[in-house]
Amino acid sequence: MPKPHVLIFLAPAVLVYTAVMIYPLFDTLRLALFAADGQERVYVGLANFRRLFLDPLWSDQFWNALGNNFWFFLIHMLVQNPIGVALAALLSSPRLRFAAAYRTAIFVPTILSFVIVGFAWKLILSPIWGIAPSLLDAVGLKSLFAPWLGKEAYALTTLALISVWQFVGIPMMLIYAALLSITEEILEAGEVDGITGMAAFWKIKLPLILPSIGIISILTFVGNFNAFDLIYAAQGALAGPDFSTDILGTFLYRTFFGFQLQLGDPYMGSAIASAMFGIILVGVCIYLFGIQRRLRHYQF
């Protein structure tokens, strides 16, 4: 039994964390096994999940949201990480002037709330205001303009790119830190062997920052699979047009909280939350046991 002062030091954090985070998490998993019967709560086993995955009334929306979520994540991986790596590589080059100023400025979107980001881009892309079309006109590409947020085919990709715009600062910073930690000796050893400039980046630096790219990937994965705010701020709870931007977060919100004429259903909401929990858990496990171990191994 630990001494009393140890318990006193631990108690507040453990109590708040357990009561407000861990207990509700498991309680949500438990609630997913119940359903409302009038005023009563009745145990239904896995029926909610059966409805969610198989009943077309629910499953169409669920698979749609899940698919959209994967697309959302894919765009982040394909666009955010390369831009982040490129910016960090530029910033970390020795004797670059104004590096601190660039870093500070490029990080600005990351600190803005989704509400600001969502509305700001909605205004800029709006065909009524015309900033986007007139900018495209200036470079002779006006014909490419479309009301991207209003078209089913483009809306989700547009929102994913807006989210990339907002968060590119985080991979940039983490990779920048990783690049700074590469010692001069390694680079000089490369130079002796004739590896300089771009070759040094591809052959020496990139392999050494792979662990950071791994961390960024899992952070992005977790962030994307419980994302909600940006879609809600830009497109509303219905994730229009015609649910084309619906992701698990907005689907959970609509189901749990209700919207317009549909009443909220906390039990189906819990089932969706449990599914999200499962997806995030699988992602985190793949990272911890698959990717991270191999990267550690590769380093030495």
């Binding site: 964390y17 407000v20 861990i22 309680d27 949500t28 909401g269 939350a273 449990s274 995030i280």
Partner: peptide
């Protein structure tokens, strides 16, 4: 239980608290 407590508290780094929203609201 020191290590175990450390692991228990670290669980929440990767799991978003939003997952528990339904039960949090109820509470």
């Amino acid at each position: 239980g020191n290590t175990l407590m450390g692991l228990y508290l670290a669980l929440g780094i990767m799991i978003p608290i939003r997952i528990g929203t339904v039960a949090i609201l109820e509470m």
